[in-house]
């Protein structure tokens, strides 16, 4: 009885309407709810693009490149350069710090230590940036941890100004974006099999040599991805600047907001936003190109 049910079912299967869908149509059907939300994102960026060539007062009908021309004025140009410089420096520092941490995370044996490490990496990423900025105020403030320590050591007589300038902002940028560098590096290093390290060590390489000549080159795609993520994230960083920069470090993201809130100049804000998007996309494409080539070379050599 049960057997005959089974055979009948299998025989019916090819007639099911689901099979008549083309695989592409079926896949996009499954993707459509997610695409609905991503569609909002894309529509929103197109709106920003349209708005950026509008004119103040006639945002939807006017057309002028005045907002972009305004971005070429010395003040805005300086802000663009400052944005790129701080993002680049923070990416370099974050990656340098992330390499040892990523290596340890990829090689840890004890489950408890792994959970503690992962929690310490995830906390700065997931805890509200506002709260972490409060912490930075405690550390960098005039009576804060760093100044007290430096005065205690007799290195300085009066508190040095660490807040509301580029030093404080840079530290904040590195710390908040640090997890974005660690995670891809750790996952790339997990992909480097231990047998390579053992082989190198057997052939007489010292620990430092093994790390520098085997592990680092093989996880380079992850390192580049990490650097790119930090750069992209920090180029448009907003909260850290709002709290630690005190508006005295005019990066692009702050300008986008200032153009809206006090000035109501939507086209200018949009133009600055478009510059941010283009910068991000350019650096992502470049990194994709570099890591893609690197990966092909690695695959060919294995």
């Amino acid at each position: 009885m049960a057997l005959s049910t089974l055979t009948r079912q299998v025989g019916v299967a090819p007639l099911r309407p689901a099979k008549t869908f083309s695989p592409t149509a079926r896949a996009w059907l499954f993707l459509s709810p997610a695409m609905l939300f991503l569609g909002v994102l894309i529509a929103a960026s197109l709106l920003v693009l349209r708005m950026s060539v509008g004119t103040k007062g006639a945002e939807w009908s006017g057309f002028s490149l005045a907002s972009y021309a305004q971005l070429l004025e010395p003040y805005y140009l300086k802000s663009l350069l400052l944005t790129l410089r701080l993002a680049l420096v923070s990416a370099l520092i974050a990656v340098l710090l992330a390499i040892p941490v990523g290596y340890c995370m990829s090689r840890l044996q004890s489950p408890l230590l792994r959970r503690v490490f992962l929690a310490a990496v995830l906390l700065p990423l997931l805890v509200n940036l506002l709260l972490q900025s409060y912490g930075w105020l405690v550390i960098l403030g005039p009576g804060g941890m760093v100044n007290q320590a430096l005065m205690g050591l007799g290195l300085i007589d009066r508190p040095v100004m660490l807040l509301y300038n580029q030093t404080g902002v840079l530290m904040g940028l590195v710390q908040t974006a640090f997890p974005l560098a660690v995670l891809p590096i750790a996952s790339a290093m997990r992909g480097v099999s231990r047998s390579y390290e053992e082989a190198a060590a057997t052939l007489g390489a010292s620990r430092a040599q093994v790390f520098r000549q085997v592990v680092l080159p093989m996880s380079l795609p992850g390192i580049i991805t990490g650097a790119t993520l930090v750069f992209a994230y920090n180029a448009s960083s907003f909260v850290v600047l709002l709290l630690l920069g005190g508006r005295r470090v005019p990066m692009l993201a702050v300008m986008v907001h200032d153009q809206i809130a006090p000035l109501m100049n939507w086209p200018a804000a949009s133009a600055a936003g478009v510059v941010l998007i283009v910068t991000t996309l350019a650096i992502m494409t470049f990194s994709e190109f570099v890591t893609g080539r690197r990966r092909r070379i690695l695959e060919a050599s294995q």
């Binding site: 929103a44 709106l47 180029a235 986008v256 809206i260």
Partner: peptide, 23 residues
């Protein structure tokens, strides 16, 4: 589709805020 899925990860948040406000 894969590229689109990871787009919000790198999309500048300030611009996302600005754009959604516009919409």
């Amino acid at each position: 589709a894969l590229q689109l899925m990871s787009l919000p990860l790198v999309f500048p948040m300030v611009v996302l805020g600005l754009a959604l406000l516009l919409i």
